[in-house]
Design a protein around this nucleic acid. Structure first.
Lengths: 328, 328
DNA sequence: CTGAAAGCGCTTACAG
DNA sequence: CTGAAAGCGCTTACAG
């Protein structure tokens, strides 16, 4: 591999001068600059980032830890991060945990060893061990997906979004509203969205029926079985169902279709996430756009501020939009 | 930051010995090893990968260049790559071109400067400049998405897949089959799939009608307008349409729905890609699963072989599966 | 079994 | 405007 030293030799200068040309730092005579540029051009010399990083303690790489890449939310989020970072000359080093929470911590260390300039974690939990590992790291850090105490976070307004969509159903006259959620260990999606749903019911003095509150996982099938449980719970039938993800709603939709119930006439249905899918199922699904690309971009911006200005913003809340379609 | 030297000082040994412990290389007495391990534990010392890479010329990082992250195909592909690489202790440095072909080349250089151990390119074109840049790089390299001459490639059997799905339509009795493709500059998706379609028609001595062969872009809307053009081309109506992506097919579906044509009774429709969407539109779309995760994993494997064994496999073709559903 | 020393490819005060 | 030299944090022959 060709090195700076070699370029210097060929140009009859010291490597210090070559470095100055490359970085546009300090004075270099036009003459010498041109000579060096020409040789760099000819040889196709590319400076070693490792050597540079070792000296400057800066790598222009940001680590991103995420649970899975092939879900719409993560890929949109990472796309948002990537576009924002690219504008500022940063790249992404990816760490995929494949839904294994232990790997979140493992990857934290791995990224630290790669000397990334900062880390964005798309968190699924907020365990104590994770928090303490993050503090130990002492690296610019932004969490998204979950708000983690003591750690700058960029987050959707999950409570308000769930409350809004539920309230919208109530305004349309629904009194008997069921809910399909996920495990509350996922604080934002599981707990906060459920709280939002409950708050809307309470605010309107509506009945909270335990059998109508089901807990699934992040899959379409799970929406199917949760819907089934609700309808088989014996009691009267709800007239609407709030689901915390589009996939759960689509699963519910499948089941309702199978048993011959019509949406929205017999039962209204809402999702959350504004997935591609939500737009093309029949009937088209009412949902909430969580603006994942924006969330990612905002997480990136926040991290960059922390890196550059030592800023220590604690929590940014991202907007959302209610998308009303045919399923209600 | 705590360094190896500091660990050595505290343990009363040389940094050479610390290095040996860390890498399990050479002999170290059990006594000393334990003492060092303990101090590493206590201090939370994490070795610098940059320093390591500078010495060893190996970074355990693979660069991945892709046009856009938030499409189902790329995110599945990257997921496949990431899982395979993780097994072997490699990580991914992401370079997103945002559909700008010039950035493919720019990112090639960027990744080289980051001294990645290898590069996987999810190619959208196969321009001469790109090819020559790749050769110049002299870095282990695998292309996917397109086969690039002289460069190891992992590729779907686009010709055969398109031919198969068209033939299947013919077997079901269709004689008048239209086609919605994309620009042939995208050789694999635009050209090869079209060739497959044409080959099936020719093999069965079916008529090739120019007006029935439309070219769109990678979007749902484009499927809509292409379908419109086909039906408005004046002539008789085709009884089936082969689309080179699911999104195009779904756009076509929308248009057919609007003008009151029923699928598959009036017109049969096929897609390609086995997207999530294809499973939940009504009617469910017949399509081809291109096994993108497998393609990604295979690309990663191929690259690893090249890195480790200097292997220089030129072309691997990935299998596909025809998924027959209700749209035909 | 362990250490001293060189070197990976850069950058950056310092001196001139 | 330019260069010599030190140093970033590791690894690895070499010597003992």
């Amino acid at each position: 591999m060709i090195t700076m030293k070699e370029i210097a030799r060929r140009a009859n200068v010291s490597s210090a001068t070559v470095s100055r040309v490359l970085n546009n730092s300090g004075y270099v005579s036009d003459d010498v600059r041109k000579r060096i540029m020409k040789i760099i051009e000819e040889t196709g010399y590319i400076p070693s980032e490792h050597a540079k990083a070792l000296r400057t303690k800066q790598s222009n790489v940001i680590g991103v830890i995420l649970p899975k890449l092939s879900t719409e939310t993560s890929s949109r989020l990472v796309n948002g991060i990537s576009e924002e970072l690219a504008k500022h000359g940063y790249q992404i080093l990816l760490a995929n945990t494949n839904l294994d929470p232990e790997k979140e911590i493992e990857n934290l260390k791995l990224l630290k060893s790669k000397q990334v300039d900062g880390i964005i974690l798309l968190a699924t939990n907020r365990g104590q061990e994770l928090v303490s590992e993050i503090q130990k790291l002492s690296i610019p850090f932004v969490a998204t997906g979950q708000v983690i105490e003591g750690v700058p976070s960029v987050i959707n307004n999950n409570f308000q979004a769930a409350k809004d969509i539920t309230s919208h159903l109530i305004e349309k006259g629904h009194q008997k509203i069921a809910f399909i959620g996920v495990d509350e260990a996922d604080w934002e999606v599981g707990h906060r969205r459920k709280e939002g749903y409950l708050a809307a019911l309470k605010e309107n003095q509506l009945r909270i029926v335990d059998e109508w509150i089901q807990k699934g996982i992040f899959s379409i099938e799970s929406g199917y079985t949760s819907m089934k449980k609700i309808l088989e719970s014996g009691n009267e039938r709800p007239t609407a169902v709030v689901c915390v993800t589009d996939r759960l709603a689509i699963g519910a939709m499948e089941y309702l279709g199978e048993i011959g119930l019509s949406i929205p006439n017999d039962i209204a249905l809402t999702g959350m996430g504004a997935s591609d899918l939500s737009k093309y199922v029949v009937p088209r699904l009412t949902t909430i756009d969580l603006l994942s690309e924006t969330t990612g971009a905002e997480a990136a911006k926040t991290l960059l501020e922390i890196i550059k200005e030592g800023n220590t913003s604690d929590k940014k809340v991202i907007d959302y939009r209610l998308i009303i379609r045919d399923s209600i």
